[in-house]
Design a protein around this nucleic acid. Structure first.
Lengths: 189, 189
DNA sequence: AGCAAAAACCTAAAGGCTTTAGGAAGGGTA
DNA sequence: TACCCTTCCTAAAGCCTTTAGGTTTTTGCT
């Protein structure tokens, strides 16, 4: 019988699509087996476990996000760079909620170190170059920016800002204004 | 045979303990049935489904958090109030990670409306009374504060700030400084 | 107290998911 | 061609949820 020609990469890609369509928690080897018309145990030739599969989706999402962030930051600085990167996260989360959820999955330290996670830190750090945040404060500022980006996107995605005015669109824009103002006037220690 | 004397509330409480000890995803009717030495289907007399159970844990956590927030805000204003409420979220998340995860669970609109979620919004709005944020900007500021609180706590809980200096403790303190500064100098529209 | 109805509990069973064990077939290579 | 590695298979065990339908305990009303 004809082979499906599976690889761990193709499985991760299909799992990412499934996650976006049905939610990250719905990702299962069973679902993928159906999708590729293959028996479930066959998938264990490519992937160690469901957790392994999900981890691959997480790494995929982190890498895609970092790629997009890098493109968005090219040639921009200051407020421009800030909103560009913010929009990358927000747009990605809305277009690929399952992948975004995957990217938030806790990774074990070794996997995390080999992931694109560090590139994300670097990108936020790059934004700070357009502002006068003292070097000793950089990490703090990176964490605050990362937290606000992630927190906003995560609350918005969970529907926290639905059905109430003003629109989330407007609040997001004001959030970017606020972060810009914050970085321009970063408080003294 | 003696009855276990279960109620939906007792189940939710036990589920919350289980969530804190083993993770919110580990919450299951099976585990609770073992815990109370009762058959699994018996639990359906008290709870409609696993989803129902998890929703109850979410409501429990939201209410506990709101209660603590209210106490923390009493008699405080400005920066004091800001850090007090921030610490409530952060401390709760660290002491009760499973409950905190539950509180972030997406609720359907009707359930969300009946939850303590609105009290949370009110508490953050109360903090703004200590600052000169224009009324038309209140909702935006509430969302930014909520996003930063949640985002920071969530990233910290996922281990994002482990194994790197400076300490997360220090960054949290600086994050509170930053939010305070932001509210004192909220940017014009 | 007596008794019926409601509530709490049970067993049985179906169906979905993961994972391991062990075997068969496709495809490349000597 | 013959071999071997990889991909795929069936079988089976173990966990989880949920529904169906029956029994026992408790409650509450007369």
């Amino acid at each position: 019988m004809a082979r499906a020609g599976l690889t761990a990469e193709r499985l991760a890609e299909a799992a990412a699509e499934l996650a976006d369509a049905a939610g990250f928690e719905q990702v299962s080897l069973s679902a993928l087996a159906r999708r590729f018309e293959v028996s479930v145990p066959s998938l264990y030739s490519h992937v160690k476990s469901t957790h392994d599969l999900k981890t691959r989706v997480a790494l995929l999402a982190l890498a895609e996000l970092a790629d997009r962030g890098l493109v968005a930051l090219a040639g921009r600085s200051g407020r421009d760079a800030l909103t560009a990167l913010g929009n990358v996260y927000r747009d990605y989360a809305r277009a690929h909620p399952g992948r975004y959820a995957a990217a938030r999955m806790p990774l074990d330290p070794a996997t995390a170190a080999a992931s694109a996670g560090l590139r994300h830190t670097e990108m936020i750090r790059a934004i700070l170059r357009g502002y006068d945040v003292p070097e000793a404060e950089e990490t703090h500022a990176v964490r605050v920016l990362g937290a606000t980006f992630h927190g906003y996107v995560s609350l918005e995605l969970a529907g926290g800002f639905d059905h109430s005015s003003p629109s989330s669109e407007r609040s997001w824009s004001r959030a970017m204004d606020a972060l810009d103002a914050l970085l321009r006037h970063w408080p003294d220690e």
